[in-house]
Design a protein around this nucleic acid. Structure first.
Length: 420
DNA sequence: TCTGGGGTCCTAGGACCC
DNA sequence: TCTGGGGTCCTAGGACCC
């Protein structure tokens, strides 16, 4: 059996922890640039605020109805997430952290039979009490079914936040009441195609022949069908698998036409990406950079320009990564466009130790580079000062908007909550 | 005026090989 | 004039996830 533990309205719930005065108020959290709504408290959902909805569309109405809004505060959310996961690990060491706000527990690792209902409620209560976050728990024989059970637990308050698919009848009941677009792994495209052949709920889908689904659709959907039938076939990575690519990109607060400012942004992103790469103890061989116009604006000439450079040897040196990213910018930049976003992607990784040296591998990745990078990372981590490279710029005219951010209550001494 | 950012996996098709 | 068949590897793009 698997349990899926998922935090309710995670970002909004994080904001509520330190603001008890907002307990029953509608809360939304916005994406970078205060662009769209990415989390809503249940009160905000009731007001009809959609997930992913552009903020400017609902702003006036929402604020007029006394809705509360926050810019995203990822430092806070990451810290709260860690706390939740730590509590869960005490309940079940076989934990697979799936995203910032959810984790699968492999309950088959328990040696003795336990009362699952009690277990789940205990889990829920402890997380609420110790961390302050409400969670929902779905338990079922496969991950896909536990996702489905979790959804029911979240949507229907009658179940008290816990749903267990313990037998065939209950499972069938919930399969029938779940529409296909709510199934894990079935997105927009598949929903359309499945509806065309008369499949409208999870039960219908589970009754199809998995092999036929495999040949007529794809193996992913085949696995979903098998999982809905109770046959586990989606595997986990219990170890934190190393990343295969690292991306840093941002929309600008406004549109940019100047190559110099684009170069500042690209350098900044390249530097951040290199930092993440070193943190993963990896080196990359492929560097991609892109710049693009605002794809939602029909009144401007559209452009998406990108290219990648393959290095002769893997590196994690910020200077090399920044230099190559700028080289790409120079080769793809065209005058006369309004750019609204830029990004840098690193890929083709090798472990940062014991890789094959190239014939042309000069001293660039030598000891002095390692020492320099380590020192820079250390200083930046301590936040005594921020060390950047070359042309990242000081003013950062392209920086994003984040006007209504809450404090970093748990990770900054200066921002600790005050009690009076 | 204002529409996020960061990932994974799979597949089709091209290049290349014998 | 006739122009096979089978395989691997790589990449771009699609679809999905939170």
């Amino acid at each position: 059996m698997f349990a899926l533990v998922d935090c309710n309205s995670f970002y909004a719930s994080c904001e509520k922890i330190f603001r008890p005065d907002l307990r029953n108020k509608p809360i939304v959290v916005l994406s970078n640039n205060d662009g769209c709504v990415i989390a809503r408290s249940s009160e905000a959902k009731l007001m009809g605020i959609g997930m992913g909805q552009p903020w400017y569309q609902v702003k006036d109405k929402y604020l007029n109805s006394n809705g509360i809004v926050f810019s995203s505060n990822y430092e806070l959310y990451a810290d709260i997430s860690n706390r939740v996961m730590n509590v869960l690990t005490e309940f079940c060491p076989e934990i697979d952290i799936y995203s910032i706000d959810e984790a699968f527990l492999d309950l088959s690792s328990f040696k003795t039979n336990i009362d699952l209902i009690n277990f789940a409620h205990d889990c829920r209560d402890k997380i609420k009490k110790w961390v302050g976050i409400p969670v929902s728990i779905g338990i079922a024989p496969t991950r896909t079914l536990s996702k489905l059970a979790n959804k029911v637990a979240k949507d229907d308050p009658r179940y008290g936040g816990v749903v267990i698919l313990a037998n065939k009848d209950i499972t069938r009941h919930f399969l029938k009441s779940t529409s296909i677009d709510k199934i894990w792994g079935v997105g927009r495209r598949l929903t359309i195609r499945l509806k065309e052949i008369g499949i409208s709920n999870a039960y219908d889908l589970s009754q199809l022949d998995p092999r036929l689904v495999g040949s007529n659709f794809n193996v992913i959907l085949e696995r979903t069908v098998r999982e809905l039938r109770g046959q586990p076939c989606i595997t986990t990575n219990n170890f934190m698998e190393p990343k295969k690519q690292i991306m840093v990109s941002r929309s600008f607060g406004r549109s940019i036409t100047s190559k110099k400012i684009l170069s500042e942004a690209i350098s900044f992103h390249a530097s951040r990406a290199a930092e993440k790469l070193r943190h993963e103890s990896q080196k990359c061989r492929i560097i991609t950079a892109f710049i693009r116009s605002n794809r939602f604006n029909n009144n401007i000439k559209q452009i998406y320009a990108s290219r990648h450079i393959e290095l002769a040897y893997p590196t994690d040196d910020s200077r090399i990564i920044i230099k190559n990213a700028n080289q790409i910018l120079n080769s793809v930049f065209m005058d006369g466009y309004q750019y609204s976003k830029a990004g840098v992607l690193l890929s083709d990784f090798t472990k940062s130790y014991g890789y094959q040296m190239s014939l042309f591998d000069k001293n660039i990745d030598s000891k002095s580079s390692r020492e320099l990078m380590r020192t820079v990372d250390h200083i930046n981590m301590m936040e005594i000062a921020r060390i950047g490279f070359g042309n990242q710029g000081f003013i950062n005219t392209w920086r994003m908007k984040r006007q209504i951010k809450s404090k970093r209550y748990t990770t900054k001494v200066e921002e600790l909550p005050e009690v009076s």
